[in-house]
Nucleic acid binder design. Structure first.
Length: 552
RNA sequence: UGGGGCGUCGCCAAGCGGUAAGGCACUGGAUUUUGAUUCCAGCAUUCCCAGGUUCGAUCCCUGGCGCCCCAGCCA
């Protein structure tokens, strides 16, 4: 059952193939390096699939490494959630997760090495002074008055920084490169800053913490990463990444940048996702409307669908904007293969079968295309619920409209053909009940002499079970929420609608996380938080493709 | 206007001097007790534009145009 898109080449594979062929590398080691300051989202999934996928393909390894260099933003809750999500996605980092904080001693020693080489200095300027001396995009910066301190002075000051002799922001360790560089990242970038904060792993051991730029390449180097894959905005950092490695004279991984994912009708920045959670626009990181891995999992998206999506969208260096429907299609494609079929009615209309006076246990397959998946019992009786959308008082021609109308015939899914003899309306003119007669000779076979094209789903009223259903829609109603003056204004007020459905009795036994196709309606997944044994709550995962709706 | 990138079908994306892969979407048509699924067929004489090199250019050169990223003691 390999319905995942076949892998096609991309520029990263090309680079790796060349490196292997030229002998520059003998094997492939990659890494996925999240900062534990939030939950993983679909954009991370792209990176995860890329990095772990490459490792699998080239029989190398991919490390899971937490880039925990900023104690004020990072928490253990995220460390746990991230590992959970990567594993759920189906990837294995072979052993224990790694942490940048495990390398703090080495990083500190390397900082001292650079000071001794005269390549780093302690600056006593304030953040504001540093900013104004950095210059602009078109004007070069100005050297710090502290730039030429002696090695001894720098060593002593850095030691004091480490010992906690200074308050936050009082001193900073900078690389001595070039304040006139057209690349802003090379204008004496910060290496170590003072932060008196409790670190989730090292506790209060440190009051100086390395900056991303001084940490990342060295972390890669320590781990023997051959290809360090990151997103495009780090491209300008690459000369700096290479500079540290060269000055430190240590193994040099190669940084390769690719374009990050943009998905329509969603936001991807962790800052914004955090705000949605903190200000309760959603019910948490795993709210089924969130573009997080955990949200999608709870919504019922299979991991295989997310992997397929990542394969399908490819990897490139140009800005790309993927439509949400591409993801939804992957979800449908996976679920179509595996989900058991059931009958459920979301908007019930009563039907009485006038010539049917018993309860009959019908047998219905769990999956019409896969008999191996077995079947279940489906009770049929003289009072049914059908969907209101399946009846029209004044339907268009039978060639255009296959469903029920006065005098029209329709197949009850997995059951008999019925004909609408009469419909009853209330004082307001609203249809409240249909009186139909069944053709008792049509169970499991077609009638002779006529074709009945329409098929509708139904549930026996006396056997029907009521269950809560949550109808989810896109979280934002603008294609690019960031285009709005404030992305919060683009929130879709109808992204969640609570309702109920009447379902066939077998559904009461559904377990948490299980996904069903409610035939002709969509895929629904038993919520893993709010469902209890025997009382499932259903999340609508995704609708079925609906060409009829498009025709209308 | 400094630097770094990118520009191939509606959306992704291969190709890297030899005459435009593939996927998704879309359009027909077949099958179907889900207007679902599945199936089969169609879908860029053209690669941002203009010059140049070449027997030959999407691929090389030059000049335009358009878009993205960079001035955190964030990552």
């Amino acid at each position: 059952m390999s319905n995942e898109t076949p892998v096609i080449s991309n520029f990263i594979r090309t680079i790796i193939n060349e490196d292997l062929k030229s002998g520059k590398r003998e094997q492939v080691t990659t890494r996925f390096p999240p900062e534990p300051n939030g939950y993983l989202h679909i954009g991370h999934a792209k990176s995860i699939c890329l990095n772990f996928g490459l490792a699998t393909e080239y029989e190398g390894r991919c490390n899971l490494r937490f880039d925990d260099t900023n104690p004020v933003k990072e928490e253990d809750e995220y460390v746990v959630a991230i590992q959970d999500d990567v594993a759920w996605l189906g990837f294995d980092w072979g052993g224990e997760a790694l942490f940048a904080s495990d390398y703090f001693d080495q990083l500190y020693a390397w900082a001292i090495k650079l000071i001794k080489k005269g390549k780093a200095y302690v600056d006593s300027q304030s953040a504001d002074e540093m900013r104004s001396n950095r210059g602009t995009l078109t004007e070069s910066g100005t050297n710090s008055p502290y730039r030429d301190r002696t090695v001894e002075e720098n060593l002593e000051l850095f030691e004091k920084m480490k010992n906690g002799d200074f308050p936050d922001g009082a001193q900073i360790l900078r690389a001595k490169i070039d304040m006139a560089s057209p690349n802003m990242n090379l204008r004496d970038p910060a290496m170590y800053r003072i932060i008196h904060a409790h670190h989730h792993r090292t506790g209060d051991k440190w009051c100086v913490y390395p900056m991303y730029d001084f940490a990342h390449g060295q972390e890669d180097s320590i781990e023997g990463v051959t290809h360090s894959i990151c997103t495009l905005e780090f491209e300008d950092h690459r000369p700096l990444y290479d500079w540290f490695l060269k000055e430190l004279e240590i193994f040099a991984p190669q940084q390769i940048e690719f374009a990050r994912l943009n998905l329509s009708y969603t936001v991807m920045s962790k800052r914004k996702l955090l705000q949605l959670v903190n200000e309760e626009y959603v019910e948490g990181w795993d709210d089924p409307r969130m573009p997080t891995i955990s949200g999608m999992r709870r919504r019922g998206y299979p991991a295989a669908a997310i992997r397929q999506f990542c394969d399908r969208i490819g990897v490139g260096r140009g800005a790309n904007w993927i439509d949400l429907s591409v993801l939804e299609d992957c979800v449908r494609e996976q679920l179509n293969e595996t989900a058991f079929r059931r009958q459920a009615v979301l908007n019930p209309l009563k039907v009485t079968i006038t010539n049917f006076d018993k309860v009959e246990m019908l047998n219905a397959p769990n999956h019409p295309q896969q008999p191996d998946l077995g079947s279940r019992e489906l009770p049929m009786s003289n009072e049914l619920w059908i969907d209101r959308d399946d009846f029209m008082e004044n339907p268009p021609s039978p060639k255009k409209y296959f469903r029920l109308g006065p005098e029209r015939e329709v197949r009850l899914r997995n059951s008999y053909i019925i004909k609408c003899d009469e419909y009853i309306t209330d004082e307001k003119g609203e249809v409240v009940e249909l009186k139909c007669s069944a053709d008792l000779d049509t169970l499991g076979k077609n009638p002779e002499g006529r074709k009945v094209k329409g098929i509708i789903h139904w549930v026996s009223a006396q056997h029907a079970q009521k269950v809560p259903v949550r109808i989810y829609d896109r979280l934002f109603n603008q294609e690019n929420p960031d285009k709005a003056s404030n992305y919060l204004e683009a929130l879709n007020p109808e992204s969640l609608q609570l309702t109920e459905a009447v379902v066939e009795p077998s559904l009461l036994k559904a377990s948490q996380g299980e996904t069903f196709q409610f035939e002709r309606v969509g895929y629904f997944t038993v919520d893993s938080k709010d469902s209890k044994e025997g009382t499932p709550v259903f999340n609508r995962t995704v609708t079925l493709r609906d060409t009829w709706a498009k025709m209308k």
